[in-house]
Amino acid sequence: MNSRSLKQITTLSVLLAAGGCGQESLAPELQALFDVKAYIQSNLDDLDGAVTALQSDAPVADGDGWSAKSDAAAVAKMKADWKRARIAYEHIEGALAVLFPDLDASTDERYDGFISTSPDDYLFDDKGVIGVHAIERILWSAEIPVTVKNFEQGLPGYKEAAFPSSHQEALDFKNKLCARLVADVKTMRSQFAPLALDPAAAFRGVIGSMNEQLEKASKAATGEEESRYAQYTLADMRANIEAGEKTYSAFRPWLLDRGGAALDVQINAGFQRLQSKYASYSGDALPAVPPTWSTTSPSATDLATPFGQLYQLLLQESDPDRSGSLINVMNQSAELLGIPQLPQ
């Protein structure tokens, strides 16, 4: 940083300090960036709190690791912590994946992604298979759906998930696997705090997150969906869309200021279509995938099922070339705001 920039920051610091941290009247662009930053920071705080609690709630190690009976309360508590962490992460995943690509991988990579590079025979340490899904796989190891087991058993280097069965495994779960997740989240949190976002980073995160929802649904058919052990993928997607709407709402005044009222109506309608569809399903799991489902050429019968309807809607809303789709109108709004789009 050169001395001129330092001087500018010092001057601004003094001005802001004099005015306190109260609400200043800002240009719509600045206000949008402030709001998005505050939203991400708040969710990072929640994420940090949840993963720290998860580590802290891990049962005290005894001679035979965890017992499904005597440690049931602790495991239930950890599952609740995990779900809190999951919601916080899915609220901000789009932005974090852009800013912290490597930490996003260590935090949120799936089992098959990790073992595609090298197998991992010891699931409780801080190397190889790590992150939220590694912990999820252990916490829900007794309830893994058959489709998921079938998929993973076919992977080279597969290792069956289980509770810690020894003193050492229980210790490592707490002090290595969970500790690594806590450390990675704290790194993201501390590195994000001083970061000044730009519109591209803030806005593209929403678009990236929208695209990921289709991927999440597509992979359910083969047991590869994201929160596959806890059967929590629909909850992930609800958090994604909630965050998308929240982030967009920060940009809305700026868009309106640029004459984007018609686009605003279309964007809100797009969010509403997805939220209504997600709300129509009960529970946290994606609707059951029809046994005859084909992603490449689904039959009319399969498309009429709850899963088929969800898939079709996501396909439409994430198609950038489909007039009026959520991604299409989001891209149009980015253009109106002067946010350059990725070249095709």
Binding site: L16, C21, L30, P194, A196, D198
Partner: peptide, 13 residues
């Protein structure tokens, strides 16, 4: 100055 403002503002907390 926007990035600077944001950087400084985040320093409030």
């Amino acid at each position: 100055l926007a990035p600077l403002l944001l950087a400084v503002a985040s320093g409030c907390t």
